[in-house]
């Protein structure tokens, strides 16, 4: 059994609003082991990015961690001051964002931006940092890295910018890398390159990774374990094989049936009816029940508890309770 790097317990993140605090994450618990890739899947508004930002201590000013703990190497990140967090960020945990152009500063050279964390966190001299920067760019597969150091972000293509972001994120050898939709803004051929790169680097450096994505294809390529989130809650968790081959929650099944399969011309597309609830929407019982084709009375009354399917796979759904008819829901799934 490998050691646990990150342990998140009952995380609740809320946003201030005129109507009182709105919870974006409602009691999420999960852990990441050394060398493992955990994928957090869900649609926009499910709280997956907010979970990541809570771990990083990068929540916007109207957001706060209201409850729960985030243990990283035996230290609770949720209780740290911003100053202490600054030492953790980049050094121990780092993050890659979706849009590399907005994450890079357009008025500084690539070299300046890659040297910065090395000089601050590792206390390297400018010259040493420069050499290490070139090494890092070479590691992420950027051709002619020496010349790239003097270029500005706008001179690079989208794929190259994302590679630079990865190089900067890895510069201080973090033990955990959080990647928030790192390939969503890229074309498929470039996306394939970046996924291969992340897989290679993770193995080379033996680091843990949290990958946030809505693309089930990307999940299958990269994940060891998967968490499915819906409306701020973790509704299913399991190893990647379990999630794809034996999904239990109706939402997970629905997500898998909503992605048109490229290899199967006869694939039957089954959309999930309705859309994601708003943060302020009051939903009794299971938060998925208004869209669930199998919902029954209990789902509307009580929030489901966690049922364990295998030792690794768990699901929050009343259908798992014994004696519930699984097949043939009360409502047929319709458009």
């Amino acid at each position: 059994m490998k050691e646990t790097v990150l342990e998140v317990k009952d995380l609740v993140t809320t946003f201030k609003s005129a109507d009182g605090p709105l919870p974006a994450v409602r009691g999420a618990s999960f852990s990441v082991k050394k060398g493992e890739t955990l994928c957090i899947v869900g649609e926009s508004g499910c709280g997956k990015s907010i979970t990541a930002l809570s771990i990083m201590g990068l929540l916007p000013s109207n957001g706060m961690i209201a409850d729960g703990s985030i243990y990283f190497n035996q230290r609770n990140l949720a209780e740290m001051s911003p100053k202490q967090m600054q030492k953790v960020r980049g050094n121990d945990v780092s993050m890659i964002f979706q849009e590399p152009m907005t994450a890079l500063n357009p008025v500084f050279t690539i070299g300046f931006q890659i040297r910065e964390p090395l000089m601050i966190h590792l206390k390297l001299s400018k010259k040493q940092a420069h050499m290490r920067g070139i090494e890092l760019l070479r590691m992420v597969g950027i051709p002619s890295p020496v010349e790239r150091m003097n270029q500005f972000p706008h001179e690079l293509s989208g794929g190259m910018r994302q590679r630079v972001m990865i190089a900067i994120a890895l510069s201080c050898n973090p033990s955990l890398l959080i990647a928030d939709e790192p390939t969503t803004a890229l074309d498929v051929t470039i996306q394939a390159q970046i996924i291969d790169l992340l897989n290679d680097l993770k193995e080379q450096l033996d680091m843990s990774m949290i990958m946030i994505t809505h693309d089930m294809g990307v999940v299958a390529e990269i994940a060891d374990r998967v968490i499915v989130m819906y409306a701020g809650e973790i509704i299913e968790e399991g190893r990647v094989e379990e999630i794809f081959e034996n999904p239990q929650h109706p939402y997970t099944k629905g997500l898998l049936a909503s992605v048109p399969n490229v290899d199967d011309p006869e694939f039957d597309l089954k959309p999930i009816a309705g859309s994601m609830p708003m943060l302020n929407e009051q939903i009794s019982g299971c938060r998925f029940h208004p869209r669930c084709p199998y919902a029954f009375d209990k789902c509307m009354e009580k929030s489901p508890k966690t049922f364990h399917v295998t030792d690794k796979q768990s699901v929050r759904c009343w259908l798992q309770e014994e004696g519930v008819e699984q097949n043939g829901g009360r409502r047929a799934s319709s458009l």
Partner: peptide
Amino acid sequence: LLSAIPRPTVGRKRERIRLRGDL
């Protein structure tokens, strides 16, 4: 282009045709 699409199936790792460089 077709080989680059990530497939939502686990286990079957297919050989990908890697394209060099950018558009």
